[in-house]
Design a protein around this nucleic acid. Structure first.
Lengths: 237, 237
DNA sequence: ACCTGAACACCGTTCAAGT
DNA sequence: ACCTGAACACCGTTCAAGT
């Protein structure tokens, strides 16, 4: 009897359950098809029932975004470089799982607890483990996150693993193959070369990431030698 | 009389006029408030009249995006580095003017002529002026565009010129200032330091850009010495 | 007091009725 | 043949009517 009752009204609605369902819908059916009505149906309730646990759709999105942040590994100890590298890889993986979050993670007017914890831990890593001055830590942070989110953005909309140009050309072919090659010779080369090399854009990520980490490493060295030269005045900045 | 007639039916509708009006609406009133109905009203026509010049809303967006591409300076000759730098700055400026374009420029399934010309010229610059091998040119391209678009993405949604954390903290203050500083000490430091330094996020762009250009410069050097060592075999790759 | 169906002001797009 | 108003299937959210 208790079982029967449970099957009729399975699980009580809660903010957490709503948020997780919303993430699942956005992942599975795409962000555009996530609507309050749609979500309510998924949960077996009326659309208006959601508004008891969620202020409005913006609030719903804020909650969803913090779930994504909670899936990103906080930079561990054991050297700033592997820690920052791991964080970058983890962020990219999370954004691959939840591509709809890419435009939204930077905005969120009232960042959730996971968001704050993630940012705090990353700053701690750059300041303490990497030993960067405050302005340098901000430079490094901005640079890395721009790259990570920008890469995720490019990756999101690439039709397959072959860049958009390849697709473009495939359509242009119907018009005039030779004319395309004449007008855009370097794009034509791109298509041929990428196909020849069995290119996968996804592999590009680590290449750029390591180049950036090298650059930050250079900053560190430059800064620590300056610090030695100018004495403890450097600690101020 | 002719004047009177012209004032009643001012300018005939055209694809170009529709696209420019759409860009203006998105710039001025925000992307979310750009609707076919809204746009038609702006142009003084019925919503359905637009469909004579535009397949659907997706087609409209494709056209708008190519207008943005047309505003980006094609990399000029005179050294790969200033050329690529100029292109980056120009792209960032265009994305600042049209923030709604950020998520969309990478996607566009059928890239427009300005898009193709821009990509072709950039590849030409990397291959010919910078003298990079094909795979290295792709690395450099992916890296730069990830950074540029990622930065634009961060910049778009930052409430003011002060990072989101500052705003977050401002709200957290109402709760408990000391508790926030205890839980997120590095974020608390961030807020204090940024305010002290009169920090403007916009200035961050060139710092990261130059670090990346330095990295690409390194790649070039490494590649040209390898080329010397291994002879013309390097030309193959 | 709590919950929620109907209603409102919007969408993009189809389609048939008007010229 | 061309153009376009009404209509359709959707939105997020308000609000008053139901319990």
């Amino acid at each position: 009897m208790t079982t029967e009752k449970r099957s009729t009204r399975p699980i009580p609605l809660s903010r957490d359950r709503i948020l997780r369902a919303a993430v699942a819908v956005a992942d599975k059916r795409g962000f555009d098809s996530l609507s309050m009505r749609n979500l309510a149906q998924e949960l077996g309730t009326a659309p208006m029932s959601l508004y008891r646990h969620v202020d409005n759709k913006e609030d719903l999105l804020d909650g969803m975004i913090d779930i994504v942040f909670s899936e990103i590994e906080v930079p561990s100890s054991g050297g700033w470089r592997p820690a920052m590298r791991e964080r970058a890889m983890s962020t990219r993986k999370a954004l691959r799982r939840h591509p709809w979050a890419i435009g939204l993670m930077e905005s969120s007017k009232r960042p959730g607890p996971a968001n704050l914890a993630q940012h705090n831990a990353t700053l701690a890593c750059l300041r303490t483990d990497a030993g960067l001055s405050f302005p340098m830590a901000v430079h490094a942070y901005s640079l890395m996150d721009s790259y990570i989110h920008g890469f995720a953005l490019q990756e999101k909309t690439l039709p397959s693993d072959i860049p958009a140009e390849a697709e473009a050309r495939k359509e242009a072919v119907t018009d005039d193959d030779a004319a395309f090659a004449a007008e855009f010779p370097y794009l034509a080369e791109l298509v041929v070369e990428l196909r020849k090399a069995n290119y996968v854009f996804a592999d590009e990520f680590e290449y750029g990431l390591d180049l950036i980490l090298d650059g930050i490493e250079q900053l560190r060295k430059r800064e620590s030698t300056t610090a030695k030269r100018t004495g403890k005045a450097s600690k101020k900045h």
